[in-house]
Computed example of a mutant assay.
Amino acid sequence: MTVSSTAPTTAPATAFPPASYPIGTPGQLWGPAELAQWRARQVRQRSYADDVLAAVDTLRTRFDVTSYGEVVYGDERYALQAIRPRAWVAGLPTVLVTGGVHGYETSGVMGALRFVDQHGERYAGRVNWLVAPCISPWGWERIQRWNQDAIDPNRSFRTGSTVQESAALMALVAQVASLQGAFAAHIDLHETTDTDESEYRPAVAARDGKAFEPGSIPDGFYLVDDTENPQPAFQQAVLQAVARVTHIAPPDERNEIIGSPMTEPGVIRYELAAWGLCASVTGARYTTTTEVYPDSPRTTPEACTAAQVAAVCAALDFVLASSR
């Protein structure tokens, strides 16, 4: 069975302001001066310590919590933490769950933490799950997609990466794989929001000295599979679970979702490793990137977090069924 949807194809046209960006000269790459201007615009709006680390602390009595690195920008230091079951059993499938690769994508972080709190014990002893709930704490606090260097961590998961957020997760994955063997699956939790069109994509164009070409935002939840390793049954298992929580994004009039051909209902494919995307970091057989649209009038922030949790549980259930 596949998942279908009758949702509107794009966000309302009134959601986005005119396509311009206040930093830089059209047609010219940013230099140090433009980067400094951009940094000055980034205002701390929430607390990683209060929102994430405090939540992780409440889980320590039931799960193992480890620090896998630190992100440092000037005087700001952010401890990176990962959570796993205390019963880490040799021979069980290992699954990575990541959130907050883009710090502004709230439901990914909240969904990862909620999965551990509400479902972690149920899967312990059956799956060796590993959750890194917030990859980009500086971005979390500024509600920003980029890191402080105006770099997208989710284009930076490459061998030899100097991007702190990406390199730390890659080191954690390598350490776990060296001790436990290959990962069976990786689910990376993301959002697509109106600010992708009103802020992020205009900023990318300005930074790179290119003209901004407006796009649209898919209204609903969708998944990104791997062009080099497509796993349609896995994607559909996740979508079927999510469809019970929130609506699935349909394609636009070109049968595309966010500029990519829809390969099956609710699914597009990217070259994950070639693009340096987080979902490529384990080399697992089963990988997916979730995308939910919290600005849709048809959903709520709570439903988006619940959808992320449903996606993680469905991924684990699929791995368990496949390993029998």
Rank of each mutant, 00 (worst) to 15 (best):
V267A: 05
E256C: 15
R126L: 05
T246E: 01
W88G: 07
A306R: 12
P250V: 10
P137H: 14
G31S: 13
E253H: 10
A307D: 00
D188V: 05
G91K: 10
F63N: 08
R77L: 05
G276T: 06
T106G: 02
S136D: 14
T14Q: 15
G111K: 01
V97R: 11
T246W: 02
E271N: 13
A49K: 12
R114S: 14
I135D: 02
E76S: 12
S67E: 15
T9A: 15
G27F: 13
D317I: 11
Q45A: 13
S107Y: 00
G27S: 04
A203C: 11
R254L: 15
Y286F: 15
E199V: 13
D64N: 10
G74Y: 04
V309P: 11
A171R: 15
V101M: 14
P93M: 03
G276N: 10
A206H: 03
D252P: 14
D51Q: 11
R62V: 12
G108M: 09
Y270E: 09
P218Y: 06
R84N: 04
I151Y: 00
L130V: 06
R39A: 09
L96V: 01
D149L: 02
D194N: 14
P133I: 08
A206L: 05
Q180E: 15
H186A: 12
R122D: 13
H247L: 05
N154W: 01
P17N: 08
T2K: 11
G69K: 08
V109A: 00
H190V: 04
T289A: 13
G266L: 03
V3I: 14
Q236A: 06
S216H: 10
T290M: 04
H119W: 04
A249D: 06
E264L: 15
W146H: 10
E264C: 12
R201P: 03
S260E: 09
T25E: 13
A132S: 09
V163L: 06
E256G: 02
D152E: 06
G69C: 05
I257C: 01
P202E: 07
V312A: 03
P214K: 11
F115Q: 02
V281T: 15
A184R: 03
D50T: 00
R122V: 03
A124P: 00
V72C: 08
Y200F: 14
Q175A: 06
M1A: 11
Y48F: 12
P218A: 07
G103V: 05
E264T: 13
Y21K: 00
L169C: 09
S296M: 08
L29I: 08
R201K: 13
A40Q: 14
T106V: 14
A171Y: 03
T25M: 05
F234V: 07
P294T: 10
R77C: 05
E105Q: 11
E253M: 13
S136E: 02
R126M: 03
R324C: 01
F115D: 08
L179M: 09
T246H: 03
A241C: 01
E141G: 08
Q236I: 06
M262F: 01
S166T: 10
L130S: 09
L169H: 10
V281K: 12
A314V: 02
A243Q: 10
A321L: 12
